[in-house]
Write a protein that binds this DNA or RNA. Structure first.
Lengths: 245, 245
DNA sequence: GCAAAAGTGTTGTCCTTACACCCATGC
DNA sequence: GCATGGGTGTAAGGACAACACTTTTGC
């Protein structure tokens, strides 16, 4: 649509007002921090570096970065993932924003926490700067900033989400045995589950594809391997209504 | 602990580094927006104003404000609530952060969305600036900024949360009938529920206190009034483990 | 007495849980 | 042949869904 002079000027005037308003606001640096979970040796692990800041004396820190001026928050998180693991087709979801004025010793920084799940074996850690490594979640002690609190929040989020959505499969290889799947659930939820009931449960959901292959190189009877049927799940997503508290 | 000169200087040096780092970061204005839900005439409603910005030509907007330099995010949201409803003992929870670079016409503004629940009758709207009013959620059309998207996200959040936690009672008077409670659930979830099963469900939870009062001034047989037993609920919060998707 | 909503039980189905034995493989 | 985990079925109990009639009150 072609604009004539008068409304264009009026619009421009309104834009100037809006811009002036935003420029009058106090500003604060905003970062994203990624809590990247993986599963290895039957343990839930999280990808961490040693903090850059001397102040923290080598304590562990999440992978994070400043959000660039014209960058979507989600994209900033994907960028961090890409830079550190080389992957961009990874599960990622915003969890919560942490903005306590004292959380960063250098001044106020607000951070948006993202949770990400990936299969450790599929992702070579490209960059070993700052001693990038996987750490078992269960044995984390003090961390830099409020990063322990962020990890705890994401872990609680994961525990809840994994019971309601098939996120867990992002942590496993494409092909997995029911034992691996059960180990994953037991490790993340911190419970032990009845093997027969667990298998029955997944059998009744009918979301696992039997690919007619067996485990290799295990020192016992090999188990069958399965894939998760994401298409079928997406089609039949249930709308559950109930009251339960 | 008294510090001697050398470590103090070292610490100060580290602090200067940290501060310099933070000051080098790009900065962006951060706001909070409150999605304040109420329940009236068997409808879920949300508290909105008409946008200040001429650009939006009177479209509806959430209640929000800039986060002050040394303010906790939660406190900023409580402040907004207090300013508009006069109340500070209100349910409030962070839901999600919206940070698309184009969401504000005056430049980039990141906003942290909060969801809040209150009983409309207990809260006189103190300030009727900008035509502060309750609007039925079901009939919301276009809104200013991305506020429709934020309301939708908070509504979805509420639908999910109300099934797992007793949030709904924040929307009702202290004393309520089972009918009112059921109306609330039906309105929020958008379903109709079997009256007998609904009552049995709550009876079996044993979290409603029969206060031995009846409804007044209803043009039909009055129902019993109840209070919700928050203490008992807090004590017996269940740890549920199951897989369901 | 009529309109309007309150209050109340039973039954079948399904899901969950608890539980024990034989089987296939590597060593 | 033994150690290790794979694979399977059943029975009981609890939760949920479906369903209809009587009671109380205001008018």
């Amino acid at each position: 649509m072609k604009k004539n002079a008068v409304p264009a000027t009026h619009e421009q005037q309104q834009m100037r007002e809006a811009t002036a308003l935003v420029q009058s606001y106090p500003k604060v640096p905003v970062t994203v921090d990624c809590v990247i979970f993986g599963f290895e040796e039957n343990k839930l692990k999280v990808l961490l570096i040693k903090s850059d800041l001397e102040l923290f004396n080598g304590r562990l820190s999440l992978l994070g970065d400043i959000v660039q001026s014209n960058e979507e928050l989600d994209n900033a998180a994907y960028r961090v993932l890409k830079e550190r693991t080389g992957m961009n087709d990874v599960f990622l979801e915003q969890v919560r924003t942490f903005g306590s004025p004292k959380r960063h010793p250098g001044g106020r920084v607000i951070t948006v926490a993202y949770c990400s799940l990936l299969n450790i074996n599929h992702h070579e850690l490209k960059i070993l700067d700052n001693e990038l490594h996987w750490h078992p979640v269960a044995s984390l002690k003090e961390m830099a900033f409020d990063h322990k609190e962020i990890v705890d929040a994401c872990y609680a989020w994961l525990q809840k989400r994994i019971q309601e959505h098939p996120l867990g499969f992002n942590l496993l290889p494409d092909k997995f045995s029911l034992r691996e799947l059960q180990n994953l659930y037991e490790a993340i939820l911190g419970v032990s589950l009845d093997r027969r009931n667990f298998r029955k449960k997944f059998a009744s959901m009918d979301l696992l594809i039997d690919i007619d292959e067996m485990e290799q190189d295990v020192p016992h009877r090999p188990g069958k391997l399965y894939k998760f049927n994401f298409e079928k799940y997406e089609k039949n997503k249930r709308k559950w209504v109930g009251i339960d508290f």
